[in-house]
C-alpha cells in the first residue's frame, strides 16, 4: 500500500533526511574531546581507556555566559551572613535578569555595591545580609541600576 508520508522511495538511504536547522555559532563553540591516554600497543589496551573523561574545567562549571561574566572584589562585611566576606571575589553574570530574591551588584550613588534584591509590594528593597547594616528602600522616582547578578563567591579558606 502506498504510504503518503514517506517521500523517499523504498531502498534509498533514510539517513539523508534533513535535520533541524541549527545555529552556525552559539554556545557550542568550545568542544572538548576526551583523549585516549594509553599508546596503541600490540598487547592489551589499558583497561582505563573506557573510563577516560574530560578534565574538570572550572570555567565551564562557574561561568554560564562567558562574555557577560565579570569578577569583582568585595570590600566590607554587609553580606557576611550569606558567606560573602571582605576580600572575596564574586562572579557576576550580567546576562541573568535580576529578579526578586537574587543577590545583585547595584550602582547606588555612583558606587557599586552588593545587596539582596527584594520586591515588597510596589517598592524595591535592597537588603544587607548582616543585621548591623540598614535596608535601603527605593523611593518613587529613584532610579535603581542593577549592574549584574551574583552567581558565585570565591573565598579562600
Amino acid at each position: 500500500m502506498h504510504n503518503p508520508t514517506n517521500v523517499f522511495p523504498s531502498g534509498t538511504n533514510r539517513e539523508l533526511t534533513a535535520t533541524a536547522p541549527q545555529a552556525l555559532r552559539g554556545s557550542f563553540r568550545r568542544t572538548f574531546f576526551p583523549l585516549m591516554i594509553s599508546r596503541i600497543a600490540a598487547g592489551f589496551p589499558s583497561p582505563a581507556d573506557d573510563y577516560v573523561e574530560k578534565q574538570i574545567d572550572l570555567n565551564t562549571h562557574l561561568i554560564q555566559h562567558k562574555e557577560a561574566t565579570f569578577i569583582l572584589r568585595v570590600s566590607g562585611w554587609s553580606m557576611r551572613d550569606v558567606g560573602i566576606f571582605d576580600g572575596d571575589e564574586i562572579i557576576v553574570d550580567r546576562a541573568i535578569t535580576p529578579s526578586d530574591g537574587k543577590i545583585v551588584v547595584a550602582a547606588i550613588n555612583g558606587e557599586l555595591t552588593v545587596k539582596r534584591l527584594r520586591r515588597v509590594g510596589e517598592s524595591v528593597h535592597l537588603l544587607a545580609e548582616n543585621p548591623d547594616f540598614p535596608v535601603i528602600v527605593l523611593k518613587e522616582g529613584e532610579e535603581l541600576c542593577i549592574w549584574g547578578v551574583v552567581t558565585r563567591v570565591l573565598h579562600s579558606v
Binding site: 565579570f70 569583582l72 572584589r73 568585595v74 570590600s75
Partner: peptide, 14 residues
C-alpha cells in the same frame, strides 16, 4: 579590571 586578578574592580559592601 577584566584581565588582572590584582586589579579587579572593587565593590563596597557596606
Amino acid at each position: 579590571y577584566t584581565t588582572q586578578w590584582k586589579e579587579l574592580a572593587r565593590v563596597k559592601v557596606e
